[in-house]
Structure formats: structure tokens, C-alpha cells
Nucleic acid binder design. Structure first.
Lengths: 233, 233
DNA sequence: CGATATCTTGATAAGCATCAATGTGAGTGG
DNA sequence: CCACTCACATTGATGCTTATCAAGATATCG
């Protein structure tokens, strides 16, 4: 995991653009953020670690997860470009963050981040917008986990992945995570994930050219299914 | 639902204290927040409403919920003093907020809120701290919904309610919400909630003096159960 | 005190988990 | 180049947890 330090870059911050700026806050040229690369499979931080930094995903895909003492795991989300991680309330990470593809991160030390929030106009607002977006995703995930059937969960998940990747109607979609990751994200077992994907294929809603890819054959029906417009299962 | 307008109060903002301030930002005396009371059973806003305000809970308990088209409901949280609601990313509320006890709210119009975030030192940081705390709660709830058994869910829920109410060891705990609310929060049915509470009572972990109250008889065992330290069910 | 909502308990069923076996694909070394 | 291996995925048989359907108990309120 190597790092680069930038300084003096401009403060662009459109939504899903970069939060980032490495700027000159009080007259001294200060590197307020650094770029860092994480290899697939490597962890950024683990549940329980001291949380000394805030990260913004610049590229690649991260998996956030929590563990119970007996090994049961919940994957609370997959993060891509524009997402924030490490906003920890009590100074400790409440989840583990691992790269499932090569990942590029912008890292802010906590103190630098707080200075930016305080000093840079628009920065706080942008952080809040990203945080709100993530709260919304969390609410949707709770609806999914609490009340949706296995097929509804898979349909919701595939559509979310499609959106994340900007996939067109009937387009091919990459699933860079394993079936175990998907199962732990959807509150199911890998067998149920596998069976349910096969069933969606039998029903001509999707195609599965290989294990890492899905083609959405009927986006409308998938959306009805995901939304709980309950005609079938 | 009646309202009062305050102006000129100080900018105290300890965690779980008030975000609130009705202050004098640019020389004019501007009421930046108003207090409002909501009766039990009344809604503050509904899923899909335009989100023009941010609220902070000053007192009482709110229920946040989402609906699927066929009526399945997920209660995404119960909010009490210090929590924020209404931080909506795309201008629309993504959940319904209803009072389950009489509730007192501090309301900020969106524009006023954004001005405060931009202009008042410490305000943005405090909002972020509250938002982080709520993200953490959301992560815990996903773990609960995705991976915990019915008894584990109820143990977790009771301990959270105890914490929310500042209940001592072996203390009596109020459950102001109905069994249906609890079921929709924990991803269960009311029958399972009822049966599981009865089972916890049979096992001497709790007592149920009446439907609206619980006594925690063995906090340690409840905590093991909630944490997934799997000796029993 | 009857009417209605809420809660509890019981009998049965469904959906998903578990256990088990087989299939597939990528990487390795003979 | 091909067998071998190992991780990952699929499919099948069975069982368990929780949902559903149903009845009765308790509480609330006019």
C-alpha cells in the first residue's frame, strides 16, 4: 500500500467528484490529504482499530463488514468512487474496510479533516451531502434485510450494482465480489444466493455468462421485484 | 402541532445537548430555528414529501419507517433527544417520521441550516458527529437484521432501549411502542416478538410486569445474547 | 360493562439454512 | 500440454426457525 502526497490542487467538489483538496489553509503549504493505493484483498482498517483518518474512495471497490464473536458476518456495504469511510463517532472503527479490487483512496488525517470542515466553505456541506446519501443507502438496506424475500434481495442488489457501474438497459454487469460476500451482504447463505440467481435466469430476468458477470434481461421486471411490487416471488 | 420561535439563545452544543441556536448571524436578529410540538400518533413528515427542513429531537420518541407497495413495513429506527432527522440527499424524505410519545422538535429550514453549517464554527462538526453516531446505529441494525436470531434481536433491542432511557442495572424499562412497531423494527412478526419475550421471561432474563414495561433481570446474559456470544438461543 | 385494539399462545406451513455431493475455472508443476 | 489442486460455485435432500393462520386473553376506552 503506497502513498503519494499532493499539494496545491484545486478545490473541485461536485457530487461524486472529489471531496479532496490538498491546500494552503493558513498560509503554509500543507498537504491536507494524501493519495494511497490498496491492493485487492488488502484491508484499509479493521473493526476496533483507532480511527485516525477519514477516506474518500477515488477508484475501485471496497467491502465494509462487521463480525459477531462466532464468525457470523454482515457486509454492510460496497463502496465505490465518491463514498466516504472512517467517519467514526467514538474514535474507533465500527467496521472492517477491505479492497475487493485495486482501490485508490484519498486520506485525510482527522485533525486536517476537521480543519477543512471548519475552514473551507462548501466542504462541510459536501461532506454532509455524501453522509446523507449513505444514510439513505443504509435505510434501503434495512428495508431489504428486514422485509424482502431472497429474490427481491437479489433483484435489488443487482440493480444497485448496475447503478454503481453506470450499466445501460440490458447491459452486462460485473460482480467483483464472491458469492459469500453477496450472501453476507443480503443476509442469506451462498447456497440461497446461487439458487436464487439460477432461478432468475430460468425466469429470463437475467443471464449469467460467467460467475463474475450478470446481464440484466428485463430491467422493468427486476425493478418491480426489487421494489416489492408483489406479483411473483 | 404548534410552534414557538426563539431568538438570541446561546450556541451551546455538547453532544446530545442541543444543536440548536436561534442566533444573529449577519447582524439582523434572525430566528434560525423554531420549536415545535407534535402529539403522539402525529406524523412530522412522510416518505416522499419534499424535504425542506432538518429537525433535532429535543424530547419524546419518534418512529422512522419505510413501506413497500404491498404494505410490508420496516421501522428503521426510534429517535430520542439529540437525534437528527430530515437530512435528505435528493430533496425528498426517504422515510416517514411519526411521534409515538408527545415530541418536541427544533426545526431548521434547509437554507438556514446550510447557513449555520457554513457560518457557525463548531456547528458542522457537531452535525457530523451526530450523523456519524447514526451511521453507526445503522450498521449495528444491519448486523442485527442480517445475522441475528430472534432472541438475539430482542436482547439487542431491549439493551438499546435501556441505554436510550438511561436505565440502571436491573431497572425497569418503558416500551412506548407497540409490538407491531418492535416487530417491524426487528424484521420479525408480532407473534415471534411476543413468543420470544415470553421465552426470555421463562429463562429469567427479563420480567414483563405489563405490556409496556420490561425489567432486565440479568444484564450480563442479555449482553452475551445480544453480542452473539453463542451459548444458547 | 361491552366494544375494540393489542397481546399471547397454539397448530401448521413455508422459506431459507444446513449438510452433502458435484461441477467449474484459474493457477501450478510434471 | 495436461493432470492436479484448490477455491469457488451450483445443485440436491432434509430440517429448523420463523411466518402464517387461528383462537383466546388482556387491556383500553367510551
Amino acid at each position: 500500500m503506497y502513498m503519494e502526497t499532493l499539494a496545491g490542487s484545486p478545490a473541485g467538489s461536485l457530487y461524486h467528484g472529489r471531496l479532496g483538496l490538498s491546500t494552503d489553509v493558513d498560509g503554509r503549504s500543507a498537504a491536507l490529504s494524501t493519495l494511497q493505493n490498496v491492493e485487492a484483498g488488502e484491508a484499509v482498517f479493521a473493526e476496533g482499530d483507532a480511527a485516525d483518518s477519514i477516506y474518500e474512495v477515488v477508484g475501485g471497490i471496497l467491502r465494509l463488514s462487521k463480525l459477531l464473536p462466532d464468525g457470523r458476518r454482515q457486509v454492510t456495504g460496497f463502496l465505490s468512487r465518491g463514498n466516504l469511510l472512517g467517519l467514526a463517532p467514538e474514535g474507533f472503527c465500527v467496521y472492517t474496510a477491505e479492497a475487493i479490487t485495486p482501490v485508490r483512496l484519498r486520506r485525510y488525517r482527522r485533525a486536517a479533516f476537521e480543519r477543512l470542515v471548519a475552514d473551507v466553505p462548501g466542504f462541510a456541506r459536501h461532506v454532509l451531502a455524501v453522509a446523507s446519501h449513505e444514510m439513505r443507502a443504509a435505510q434501503d438496506q434495512m428495508m431489504l434485510l428486514g422485509r424482502k424475500s431472497a429474490s427481491e434481495r437479489l433483484a435489488s442488489f443487482l440493480l444497485r450494482m448496475a447503478e454503481m457501474q453506470g450499466v445501460e438497459d440490458e447491459g452486462k454487469l460485473a460482480l467483483p465480489m464472491t458469492r459469500t460476500d453477496i450472501a453476507d451482504h443480503l443476509g442469506l447463505t451462498i447456497e440461497t444466493v446461487s439458487r436464487t440467481l439460477s432461478k432468475l435466469r430460468r425466469d429470463r430476468l437475467i443471464d449469467l455468462p460467467d460467475t463474475g458477470h450478470v446481464v440484466l434481461l428485463d430491467r422493468d421486471l427486476l425493478e418491480d421485484l426489487a421494489a416489492g411490487d408483489t406479483d411473483q416471488d
